[in-house]
């Protein structure tokens, strides 16, 4: 009985974590979409560190930049929907990790790098992106949607048919 109670609580915590991260992704995507003229150019162009040439190239080529913008917006929205509803949760979480990792690589908070877009806190190597990435990792390795998510239905359908 004891064990079962604590398991329930663990599942509950995972589901909450999943929904909150999903909400964050979804809103980041929707807000950019609603802005109409949102572009990643500002963020990318101030990229520092070793990968900065890659990001600068994305900005300099309009077609690529448009593609990056669209992929980012829709990526965020789909990942958000996936996490909130618990649909293909593991894939969504992995994609989320990859996306955040790109943000991190673009502007890592390393000693000696300064950015013109001020951040709202103080970070050294670890920032909120890294924390969110780690949280998504938790969602991948634990069953975060097996019970309380569309995956629950999908798994059942898949198993029998």
């Amino acid at each position: 009985m004891q064990i079962k109670e604590s398991q329930k609580l663990q599942t509950c915590a995972l589901v909450i974590l999943r929904i909150l991260i999903g909400w964050h992704f979804l809103y980041e995507g929707v807000a950019k979409l609603l802005k109409g003229n949102w572009s990643a150019a500002g963020f990318l162009s101030q990229s520092k560190w070793i990968l900065s040439p890659v990001f600068q190239w994305m900005v300099s080529n309009e077609t690529v930049l448009n593609l990056v913008n669209q992929m980012n917006i829709w990526g965020l929205i789909l990942i958000g929907l996936g996490l909130i509803t618990g649909t293909f949760t593991r894939i969504a979480a992995a994609a989320g990790m990859a996306l955040i990792f790109l943000y991190y690589l673009c502007n890592p908070p390393l000693a000696g790098l300064f950015y013109s877009i001020p951040s709202e806190g103080n970070y050294l190597i670890v920032n909120k992106n890294v924390v969110e990435m780690a949280a998504l990792f938790v969602l991948i390795v634990f069953p975060a949607a097996r019970n309380w998510g569309i995956d629950h239905i999908l798994v059942r359908m898949f198993r029998r048919s």
């Binding site: 909130i84 509803t85 239905i153 999908l154």
Partner: peptide
Amino acid sequence: QGLAATPV
């Protein structure tokens, strides 16, 4: 159970 989170 599967749809439990969709109201969010």
